[in-house]
Design a protein around this nucleic acid. Sequence first.
RNA 1: UGGGGCGUCGUCUAAGGGUAGGACAUCAGACUUUGACUCUGAGUAUCGUGGUUCGAAUCCACGCGCCCCAGCCA
Length: 696
Amino acid sequence: MSEPRSLHFIEEIVEADLASNKWQGRVHTRFPPEPNGYLHVGHAKSIVLNSGLARRYGGKFNLRFDDTNPAKEEQEYVDSIIDDVKWLGGDFEDRLFYASDYFGRMYEWAEELVKKGKAFVCDLNAEQLREHRGTLTEPGKNSPFRDRSVDENLALFRRMKGGEFAPGTHTLRAKIDMSSGNINLRDPVMYRIVKAHHHRQGDAWCIYPSYDWAHGLEDSIEGITHSICTLEFENHRPLYDWFLDELGIHHPQQIEFAKLRLTYTVLSKRNLLHLVKAKYVSGWDDPRMPTISGMRRRGYTSQALRAFCEEIGVTRNDTVIDLLKLENAVRDHLNATAHRRMAVLSPLKVVVTNWPEGQVEHVEVQNNPEDEQAGARTVPFTGALFIERDDFMEDAPKKFFRLVPGGEVRLRGAYFIKCESVVKGADGAITELRCTYDPSTKGGNATDGRKVKGTIHWVSATHAVDAEVRLFDRLFSAEAPGEAYKDTPDLEFPFLKDLNPKSLEVVKAKLEPSLGAAGVGERFQFERLGYFCVDKDSKAGAQVFNRTVALKDAWAKEKAADEGAAKPAAAAPVKAEKKKDAPAPTGPAPEIEFTDFTKVALKAGRVLAAEKVEKADKLLKLTVDLGEGAPRTIVSGIAEAFAPEALVGRNVVVVTNLKPRALKGIESRGMVLASGSGKTLSLINPGDVAPGTDVK
RNA sequence: UGGGGCGUCGUCUAAGGGUAGGACAUCAGACUUUGACUCUGAGUAUCGUGGUUCGAAUCCACGCGCCCCAGCCA
């Protein structure tokens, strides 16, 4: 299909190791989650990486629970993680391990280090330990207990294990270097006393190994060759190496890569846990959650998730992936595989006046035009139909090529219909369309060769199945949730401020009858709407569908662009001065919500240059100094009111936090505020202030 | 201010001294019984400044910016 992609840096390391026979030809990776939450799409990246390496190089892949902290871990999480890893295709065969099963060996190794004089029991409490640790710029101080004798350390350590001490009173520490620039090397804690019930070990232990001590041992025991983790563990690598070298045991190579970050998404277990616990979502598998179980429930396929992980690559760059890329991956897979069905989400009744009373015709429709093998199905057509409300407009713009009064449209797979009259209720709302069909257009083709531009979906009113459909939008409305509030004091979870209040919309839909038999988890494309799957909340006769992802919609985009043009002007504080029908000062569609005044960033700018935009009567291309170093290019629809040269040197007010938008091929980064319209437009003057000054 | 890391189109990511390529996004067009898919085309990038070299994203130097680290979490 495509050219083989070049190797990423970890594959290069593995291939070099294979070439040099560093591990006797072995490749053995692992995925080591702590069972303290559900897995999310970031973990998917790691699973795909680790299991993919094993598959690619004929190696092995382990699933290992890093269950060294009984206070946070639960069996529920273990179960969900196993399900998720399997679902994703992470093939650990029979190699499902638990770090807690190694506690005995870890303890013996700890005694070995004590005997070597490389570890000591420290009586400092947590606060004292912190004081002794020093700071980022100052070295730490040795613990007063650092020079205890081996015998004393051994005795004390055994008493720790024996449960003789209270939590927090003693720790076992490695004896390394309190003056190291790397804080992890300042005599790190190897064991702490925890009196808590362990999900597997019960109360067998009251001392628990810390991550740094335990992790390398776990890898070593399992014969791991490449111990892959995320970038924040890079500072821990010297410690990983130190323990293994002191013990002289199998020493895997730790390799760090950048973890996944996604726009409009939070991906930390702490934050996800809060969303669940505080009931902002229905659970870990809420379809809006970026958890693997949530995405699965929403209708994502594991193939799509894996394709996404392959596509984003593996590097050490700290980057943020556009959520659109994920959505693109599902669309891509579902487009190829999902059967098409018709469903009407917002029904508008259509009566076909010349259809023979009571007649039912079964029209044949293809299941998937992308896949011949998918075959065809039959859909009942009658004189009483539902179509989508959005597919009819009384006062339609030229570019609207769906149904309009007196106009003709094709009903997918059936006939052309023509709208003869519009029936309205007392409140003026459209309640019904009266149409005629053309019998010579059966199957959707006109015998006289005449064309209709639009094809719309429909269901027979008498046959339609009722169902609940859940439409999801992104859970957060900010690209980086909480970023704008991260310095707000007393805000424990800033990302909650960016929660999207419209992330879930529930509608009552009319479905084509074949859908009534669809079982939980089955996926379909509802033609022209998106991909949907049957949710587990479905009951007999009361199905629930989740929208996995909408289809791309060029028409919606065009409409939004038109409406968006009016939006920023209304959102800006100059609203009162504007006429209702005034064109916006510029075209950029804002990313901010209409009501969100507080998010509009207004700054003073100085126009450095201005020129007319080719093939656009109203647009000027402005170069505006906003005190940011480089000036911005802003395209503004003010050419009717201002000659370009009249603007140079003027101060203007600019909305700076809009998503860049291309106008006539020019990227516009912001919007100039103006009031009035057409030739009588005036620019808002911020006064005589420096470019970049906030205008309130 | 200590230690570690990272800087290539809007966003990801290739190019490992020799034409800065791909994906997603954007825009324009073609096709279309899904305004989808597909196809065609367009624009936009090597953090900066010096140096080495016939030639630098790549090597060197000096800057600049961003990320991680002061849990008895992982």
